[in-house]
Amino acid sequence: MQILCFNLKWKRLLVLFLVWASFLLLQVIKNDVAVCGAWFWVLFCLQFPVALAVFGYEAVKLYRENKKRISTGNTESICEASIEWTPMHILFCALCGIIGGTVGGLLGSGGGFVLGPLLLEIGVSPHVASATSTFVMMFSSSLSVVEFYLLKRFPIPFALYLMGVSIVAGFWGQFFVRKLVTILRRASLIVFILSGVIFVSALTMGGVGIEKSIKMIQDHEFMGFLNFCSSQ
């Protein structure tokens, strides 16, 4: 418990919660206004200042902490990685986050498959990278869960079933991987598992997409883009 309390950054968790609550409030209010009306676009555009403000706050904080750490000669690693938060690294991580969020929003696959390899690339240990990417997916998915529940579009029995299966599979997967890492003494195994999951997911989504496209072509269905306002 002491280790947990020491590692938790309560101020940063509070910032995350405020962002979470802000986006939830904007989404719920936006669903109650006329689609493509003036207030719809105002609420839609308000999400960008919130995201940019938090990004700017965290970016400046990371840069200052990194600069202070270097000036004092402190070689202590952060999350088991000696990360130098230069402006280029910060912008690179932000770009990867944007790409991951965009792809995750379009495909419904979550941004963890982008964040995980990114953390591994900048030197974070596989254990920390896996836990961080999972937390980020939980953070974003919980926002959708609460939003759909408030809008009464949430099938509770189906969700409880999937949640139960996911919890059991998650604990079993962690136990299995931990045993393998202990036996083989190679933490890089997590990297290979993560890469394999991403590869299989890409093949699966591609295969399903091709199958649906072929069926739509055979049925002479419309495959173009719908009007944004009329499709809401």
Rank of each mutant, 00 (worst) to 15 (best):
L91G: 04
G224A: 05
F44W: 10
F135G: 13
G206I: 00
F23D: 04
R153W: 03
Y149W: 15
A34M: 06
L107N: 08
L119H: 05
S230M: 05
R185M: 07
S231Y: 08
K9V: 08
A131T: 11
M1D: 10
C5K: 09
I217D: 00
I214T: 01
S71N: 11
L62W: 02
H127V: 09
V128I: 13
S166I: 11
F175E: 07
F228P: 10
Q218R: 06
A94F: 15
I70G: 02
L95C: 14
F23T: 03
V136I: 12
H127G: 03
R64E: 09
P157Q: 12
H127K: 12
A21Q: 06
V128A: 09
A38F: 08
L8I: 15
L203K: 00
E147D: 10
G207H: 00
V200Y: 03
L24V: 03
L180G: 02
S141I: 15
V128W: 03
A169Y: 11
K61V: 05
G123W: 04
T134Q: 11
S125W: 07
F222N: 09
L150A: 13
R186S: 12
L95S: 14
A51D: 03
C93H: 07
K9G: 04
K9D: 15
R153C: 05
M163W: 14
S195L: 13
I3Y: 10
V28C: 02
P49F: 03
K30E: 12
W39Q: 06
F222M: 01
T72W: 04
S188Q: 14
P87F: 10
S231I: 04
G104R: 02
P157S: 13
F176P: 01
V50C: 05
Q174R: 05
Y149I: 12
G206K: 00
T75V: 09
F23W: 03
L62I: 02
L194S: 07
I98D: 08
L95N: 08
S109T: 15
S125F: 07
F92Q: 07
W172T: 13
S166K: 07
P87Y: 11
S195D: 13
W20H: 11
F176G: 00
D32V: 03
K61R: 13
G164Q: 04
A81Y: 09
V42I: 14
L14P: 00
S71L: 14
N227R: 01
F113I: 15
F228T: 09
C45K: 05
I190H: 08
V200M: 04
V124L: 08
F48E: 10
S230I: 05
I190D: 10
G108T: 10
L91Y: 13
F135I: 14
L4I: 12
L25Y: 11
A94Q: 14
L25G: 07
L106T: 08
E121K: 09
H89Y: 10
R186Y: 08
C229N: 03
